[in-house]
């Protein structure tokens, strides 16, 4: 039993650490804020998840659930914060429009006659504000 758990940890720890490192690398290398979000999300979900599960495998029974709880919590909250940061980045021109191959949200905003954020004061449209 211990051997199996040790093997699980031996696989998950380096994998999680590697994803943390790759996420940090992406955070450093990607060109604009919105792209960096992807890298951050990866370190936050995959990296931490793997490390925490690996740690839980080594913990005495009482503490393992708490670690899994942290992992679950992170899995639930990381998307919310990155979604909010992404939305804010779009509205405050935190992304480089020249790097986008296509921007279908801008297409719609233009169709609706709403000025694009970054060119004018960012305007809230009510239907997106739910």
């Amino acid at each position: 039993m211990t051997t199996v758990l040790n093997a699980v940890t031996a696989v998950l720890f380096p994998a999680g650490a590697a994803f943390c490192l790759l996420g940090a690398l992406g955070l450093l290398r990607f060109p604009d804020t919105t792209s960096r979000l992807h890298a951050a999300a990866k370190a936050q979900t995959l990296g931490l998840l793997l490390v925490l599960v690996g740690a839980a495998a080594q913990m005495p029974g009482r503490h393992a659930p708490v670690l899994l709880l942290v992992a679950l919590f992170q899995l639930f909250t990381a998307p919310i914060s990155s979604q909010i940061i992404g939305r804010t980045a779009y509205r405050t021109a935190g992304l480089d429009r020249d790097l986008l191959l296509r921007d279908e949200l801008a297409d719609r905003l233009v169709r609706d006659g709403i000025p694009l954020p970054g060119h004018d004061r960012p305007q809230r449209d009510d239907d997106a504000e739910r």
């Binding site: 943390c20 955070l27 951050a40 370190a43 931490l48 490390v51 670690l67 990381a78 405050t92």
Partner: peptide, 24 residues
């Protein structure tokens, strides 16, 4: 500022991961 918020968030995540490894 958004980049910094994001980086801080990731830093805290890494602190959590490192603390878990250290605890083990």
């Amino acid at each position: 500022a958004l980049d910094r918020i994001m980086a801080l968030d990731v830093l805290v995540t890494m602190t959590i991961a490192a603390t878990a490894v250290g605890a083990v």
